[in-house]
Amino acid sequence: MREFEGSALKINNLLYLFQQLLNILQIGSIYAMIALGYTMVYGVLLLINFAHGDLFMIGAFITFLSATYLNFGFIPSLILSMTATALLGVTIERTAYKPLRNAPKVSVIITALGVGVFLENLTLAISPYPKHVPQLIENTIYNIKGLTLSLVQIIIITFSVVLMIGLDFLVRKTKLGMAIRAISWDMQAVPLMGIPLNKIISITFAIGAGLGGAAGVFYAAAYPVIDPYMGIMVGWKAFIAAVVGGIGNIRGAMLGGYALGAIEVAVMVFLPTTYRDLISFLLLFILLIFRPYGIFGKPRNVKI
């Protein structure tokens, strides 16, 4: 009898572990998707696009608008939101960053911060109240041998993984991807090879912003109360994920996103939530001491 009780407890613990693993995959997918935007833009321009977290917020707000006023479901909202944030990303790049391409780095960083604050306050001016996003995904729950799995979780995790594999393929196996990698390697030499530099940079921004927008849709589907400031903290965390993975490296950003999700959940399992960000950031410092370029990052010479 005692043995039986022991094994039942073990199964319970195992289930609990798997349940928390699912939580990691869900939040990690969202961090990874946003981290990709930071890493891609950094890859081509060596610019930390601080407005990226706010593009994620805009993605969520577009979902709110399309779901509330146009009665869009999940997939149409996702397509609309990704397209709109991609266009917005390109517009920001063309109007705010491009004129400063030869300006001192600090000016560009200030501009990026400014664009972020502008987007937040624009949303705030239009609608200061937190918004409730209508249900995008059926509230179906599957129970597999005691493990509770919701449709929302399945969709978020699958869509993120598919989009990320797609991106990885695009960057590694296509001509466009080769051009992106070439710019990342040497921006001065690339135009000499006949590659349209500005066009490729814009496309990179569009992809990064589109993925951020998609993360916004996932977020709105999983956590349907959104506000203009939601992008700040999530954006910072995704930025950490990108740095941990090695900023500029796409697979690094994905790994970093899931790693950060795992650290956060692990901290919350054992400690009060106030320690969560403290410990995540502390681990970041420690990691960077030993691997200053992140897990997958490589040292590169930056000409200033």
């Binding site: 349940q19 928390q20 939580n23 939040i27 977020y219 956060e264 399992v269 939530t273 106030t274």
Partner: peptide, 19 residues
């Protein structure tokens, strides 16, 4: 269980509570 202002994801805490 605790969370911090602005948190949107409570799944870790609820998994613990369910347990």
């Amino acid at each position: 269980e605790t969370y911090s202002t602005g948190d949107r994801d409570f799944s870790t805490q609820f998994t613990k509570i369910k347990n």
